[in-house]
Amino acid sequence: MNITKKVRVAVNGYGVIGKRVADAVVLQPDMALAGVCDVSADWRPRMALAKGFALFGATADHAAAMRAVDLAVSGTLDDLLAQADVVVDCTPKRIAAANVEAYRKRGIRFILQGGEKHSVTGHSFVAEASFASAIGRDSTRVVSCNTTSIVRTLNALKRASLLARARGTLLRRATDPWESHLGGIMNTLVPEPAIPSHQGPDAQSVDPDLDVVTMAVKVPETLAHLHYWSVQMTRAATKAEVLDAFRASSRIALIRMDDGLDALNAVKEMMADLGRPHDNLYEVALWEDMLTVQGDELFYAYMVDNQAIVIPETIDAIRALTGLATEAFATMALTDAALGIGALARW
């Protein structure tokens, strides 16, 4: 891997995902953060400046509003793009799709997040499944947190020749913790109105061969998502075989209830104790002592941190588009080392 010249990365949108992407970029040996862009003039862009990041306003009006409250602004989004090789768009759903025309007009490579449709880029990304087809492209879409977890786990079984078909139920957190005072749900459950829910077809946008159906319901909590899966395997297998298949992925962490990691909050607390920024859980945290095998049927559950799981995938997508890496294993190893992925396996 050539790291003599660093790729300059712009981050458009400094919210839940954007701030984590920016933090991850500066840890990579082959990347440099050109700057971050946003529309707000409150405490959030101040955090970017406190970290030494160059700050840009989305438009001249946004930049002026930031300067009016004494934020040191380096220019507009156009100015930031002129200094970058690739842009990671972390703006809210549907806004990113509207930005695509500007990116294409400038000829800059771009990465969207899972809130946008597959058709916007024509490519959907999870490193272990679709890295090779992303190499040298002008754009890709890092799929959503839940879809990322689905592709990671099912592809682990697929690589071990154990996957026939999978059916999953998703308990989805209602909103992000920092804005739970603005919305979300209380004292109720909200089923997603269609079966399959959108995550199954989205996983097939990454790997069309997956036989997967998902159902989802919103629940009144904000810590993380919880998945339950029933898998028909290609043959009868042992629990040890299945666990070995999952262990083969560095981004699936096997955890145990009998270690006291018996609830979402306990796992998040462990992330804090490990010193992870923002308590990030980059891995799929899968309970190995709950996992059950009955002949050729497999049952398991895992936790998904929707604020963190897509961060390593985004870093790998940058390397794919810009040619910094040509093999999924190489970029994943570099990303994992920089972000401390693998600490759960060593614990």
Rank of each mutant, 00 (worst) to 15 (best):
Leu182Gln: 13
Gly183Ser: 04
Gly184Asn: 07
Met186Val: 15
Leu189Gln: 02
Leu189Lys: 00
Glu192Lys: 09
Pro193Met: 06
Pro193Asp: 04
Ala194Cys: 14
Gln199Trp: 15
Gln199Val: 15
Ala203Arg: 01
Val206Lys: 07
Val206Ile: 02
Val206Gly: 00
Leu210Ala: 08
Leu210Gly: 04
Asp211Tyr: 09
Val212Leu: 14
Val213Cys: 03
Met215Gln: 12
Ala216Thr: 04
Lys218Thr: 04
Lys218Ala: 09
Pro220Asn: 03
Val231Met: 10
Gln232Trp: 08
Ala236Trp: 08
Val242Ala: 13
Leu243Asp: 09
Asp244His: 14
Asp244Pro: 06
Asp244Leu: 14
Ser249Phe: 12
Arg251Val: 02
Arg256Val: 09
Asp258Tyr: 11
Asp258Ser: 03
Asp262Gly: 02
Leu264Val: 11
Glu269Ala: 15
Met270Gln: 12
Met271Trp: 10
Ala272Pro: 03
Asp273Gly: 00
Leu274Pro: 10
Gly275Thr: 01
Gly275Arg: 08
Arg276Ser: 10
His278Arg: 00
Asp279Gly: 06
Leu281Trp: 00
Tyr282Val: 05
Ala285Val: 05
Leu286Trp: 12
Glu288Ala: 15
Glu297Trp: 08
Tyr300Thr: 05
Tyr300Met: 02
Tyr302Glu: 01
Met303Lys: 10
Val304Pro: 00
Val304Tyr: 04
